[in-house]
């Protein structure tokens, strides 16, 4: 019996190596260099971010992101919660859902499926959110500048 204990411990340690990697990834997800602040990752590779923008503005920014990334859009329509977009890339299907929280707050959910059910491409999903955030900021800055130009001096 004394010999079984260490074997069980070693076996469990070997069996749970992958879980340790996952835990480490989650722990460092929010502090990586270049990582967009406020991007939420889940264990299964789904990425979320809440934007201060309407669904209409966020959808347009996401369409621009897909164009910039060279991902053709295959589906673009309303959903129960707000709006849903689908794009494609190499062996990937990217699903984007917009959930309207308020008129000016929208939560974006990105899933990059890599063919199988359980395999997600979280890095691509994160990049889509980062690009969308950048384009959205540019849109809002341009709108502010335009408003200023129209104001009488």
């Amino acid at each position: 019996m004394n010999r079984i204990g260490p074997v069980v411990v070693v076996s469990l340690a070997l069996a749970l190596q992958g879980c340790a990697t996952v835990a480490l990834t989650l722990a460092t997800a929010g502090v990586g260099i270049g990582m967009e602040a406020g991007v939420e990752h889940t264990l299964n590779g789904i990425v979320y971010k809440t934007f201060t923008a309407s669904t209409n503005e966020l959808r347009f920014a996401t369409l621009k992101s897909f164009d910039r990334l060279g991902m053709p859009v295959t589906n673009d329509g309303k959903s129960e919660d707000g709006w849903k977009l689908t794009a494609t890339a190499s062996n990937r299907t990217i699903d984007v859902d917009f959930q309207s929280l308020t008129e000016q707050t929208t939560r974006m959910r990105v899933v990059a499926n890599t063919g199988a059910i359980f395999f997600k491409d979280a890095s691509t999903a994160t990049e889509i959110i980062n690009q969308t955030a950048q384009i959205l900021a540019d849109q809002q800055n341009a709108a502010k500048a335009k408003t200023k130009r129209k104001e009488p001096t």
């Binding site: 309407s54 209409n56 341009a142």
Partner: peptide, 10 residues
């Protein structure tokens, strides 16, 4: 295109 919160979708 220029979209607004309450305008038509792009």
């Amino acid at each position: 295109q220029e979209v607004t919160a309450d305008g038509p979708p792009a």
